[in-house]
């Protein structure tokens, strides 16, 4: 299985195959290394990837979102199965999904399907605690669909609005 893994600024293409009690792993097409280890508790892993690369880390996955705790460092990113994305791109025509980074409640939806928007235009405002967070269009385009309504609670990673780029 191949995954696109992004943590912080680091992006890697990682192949994983089962190998008895462990795994065979290749990072960015590099040499295949045998990884052994085990799951420990709800999110814990003890992993040994050889060459002294072994320690305890914690991993939480929510959909494609990944949260890795390595020591005290929270590393955030995603683990994507490119095959799923290939399907999406084929069907979605390069649409841009605007997603939340935190759970909250939708305060306002400022666009409707079919609206033309400019880059940086506020699409949806989501409140968490007492802070309002504006979600803006990453590029100019047309609103393909609005996936939320005012007052609705949203999870971290939820799709708020789907945009079609202006110049496809």
């Amino acid at each position: 299985m191949n995954y696109e893994v992004k943590l912080g600024d680091r992006v890697a293409s990682i192949d994983v195959r089962a190998d008895g009690e462990g795994w065979l792993v290749s990072v960015d097409g590099g040499p295949v290394r045998r990884v052994t280890g085990r799951r420990q508790g709800a999110t814990g892993w003890w992993l040994d990837a050889g060459d002294g690369l072994r320690r305890a880390v914690d991993v939480a996955l929510r959909g494609e979102q990944a949260f890795v705790l390595d020591g005290v460092d929270p590393l955030r990113g995603e683990v994507v199965d490119p095959r799923e994305h290939a399907l999406e791109l084929a069907g979605g025509g390069g649409a841009g999904r605007v997603t939340t980074q935190m759970p909250g409640a939708v305060v306002r939806v400022q666009v409707s399907a079919g609206d033309s928007v400019h880059a940086g235009q506020v699409l949806v405002v989501v409140e968490a605690m007492k802070m309002e967070n504006e979600f803006k269009a990453p590029f100019a385009g047309v609103v393909a669909s609005v996936e939320v309504a005012a007052g609705q609670a949203v999870e971290s990673g939820a799709v708020l609005v789907v945009l079609d780029p202006a110049d496809a």
């Binding site: 893994v5 943590l7 912080g8 994983v16 320690r55 890795v68 390595d70 683990v79």
Partner: peptide, 29 residues
């Protein structure tokens, strides 16, 4: 913080691999 080496990325990939495998019905390793 940024990953100091490949282990956090490998861990994330293995965690996803095991989740996919469990969803597909195979027993986790």
């Amino acid at each position: 913080p940024e990953p100091g080496d490949d282990l956090p990325l490998i861990a994330a990939a293995i965690a996803r691999f095991e989740r996919d495998r469990a969803l597909a019905g195979a027993a986790p390793a």
